[in-house]
């Protein structure tokens, strides 16, 4: 019950954020270089044709009016049409989003599964080799340009060792995509009981996911270590030890659950980085997600997809932060009950 109230309140708080996002994308839309009407009309258009297009696009209206039209179009799910693909932007994004999400979530999952134990281990054994390893990994993780990490991995695991497939998208040329259920190829292939296909999809996913994971691992491990060190030194841990609780209970039920709180908050920031890094990784691995879609459009000066992409990413991020707030409330009663 308290949790529902918390969710409602956070949802209300997310609304101004979303509004801000819409205003900013609208402003960016208006600030586009050149005259969109002239651009859409093409180089051979007459002045009259340009004016017609201007009127059709609503560009002859005042800025507030244009904003109203913009919001109305958004409400209808109309993000414009891509000049490159000739399709509505919304449909393009919808078909490509699962690829990006699969990659981002795989990267995040990988990062969390490695970074949490690494952070905990280095906090419980400060100065040990695990601690030093964690320090090297985290410093390298925040210093390595993500596109560079990707290229290094490709060179080592594709060119030198031949373990990984060519960095060319989600499936090799001989496979066909599984029937869409979740849009995540690995999951869909498993659901279709096609082990070989799942393996093929997993092989394609491995390197880009590891690239993202290495990048996201650093801040998570660092925060886990710092937070765990802080919690382990706190008084209630001393109480738990004085009461003779089993070391496992002290470490997991008492210390880790408390130490996770700042890590959960940090995940929002990490996700923001991941969504940006996704664009770079998709480019390196020719991954057919929304990032590479936006990039192709950007190079071709096709702005509607870029706008749609930015809006999509921002909306996704707002909802992700909402989820994080709710998860935080689940773990921390102080937030839940005071809501």
């Amino acid at each position: 019950m308290a949790l529902l109230r918390l969710a409602g309140r956070r949802l209300a708080l997310a609304v101004p954020g979303l509004l801000g996002v819409i205003v900013v994308t609208f402003l960016l839309n208006r600030a586009l270089p050149g005259d969109p009407a002239a651009f859409f009309a093409g180089p051979a258009a007459t002045r009259q044709a340009i004016e017609e297009i201007r009127a059709r696009l609503g560009l002859d209206k005042s800025v507030p009016e244009q904003f109203v039209y913009y919001v109305r179009d958004l409400a209808r799910g109309d993000l414009g049409t891509s000049l490159t693909t000739g399709q509505p932007v919304l449909r393009d994004l919808a078909t490509r989003l699962p690829a990006s999400l699969e990659l981002t979530l795989a990267g995040l999952a990988l990062a969390v599964t490695v970074a949490l134990p690494l952070g905990v281990l280095s906090a419980t054994r400060p100065g040990s080799w695990v601690d030093h390893l964690a320090r090297v990994v985290t410093t390298a993780g925040v210093s390595l340009p993500i596109f560079f990490t990707g290229l290094l991995l490709v060179y080592v695991f594709y060119f030198l060792l031949g373990w990984a497939p060519a960095p060319l998208g989600r499936l090799d040329a001989f496979s066909t995509a599984p029937r869409q259920v979740t849009g995540f190829f690995v999951v869909d292939a498993v659901l279709a009981h096609d082990g070989a296909l799942a393996w093929a999809a997993l092989r394609q996913l491995a390197l880009p996911a590891v690239t993202l994971g290495l990048f996201a691992m650093a801040p998570i491990a660092r925060m886990t270590r710092a937070s765990m060190l802080g919690v382990l030194g706190s008084e209630f841990i001393r109480t738990a030890r004085a009461a003779g609780l089993a070391p496992r209970t002290v470490l997991v039920t008492y210390a880790l659950r408390n130490a996770l709180l700042p890590v959960i908050t940090l995940l929002g920031m990490v996700f923001s980085f991941l969504l940006g890094a996704n664009v770079l990784v998709e480019k390196v691995f020719a991954w057919p997600g929304v990032g590479s879609y936006a990039l192709e459009a950007l190079i071709a000066s096709d702005y509607a997809p870029v706008q749609g992409f930015v809006l999509l990413m921002a909306t996704l991020y707002v909802f992700l932060n909402l989820t994080i707030d709710i998860v935080y409330g689940l773990v921390d009663p102080r937030v839940r009950i005071e809501a």
Partner: peptide, 11 residues
């Protein structure tokens, strides 16, 4: 211990 509020697990 002293300061009982911080000596108990807050969550």
């Amino acid at each position: 211990f002293q300061s009982p509020r911080t000596a108990l697990n807050p969550i």
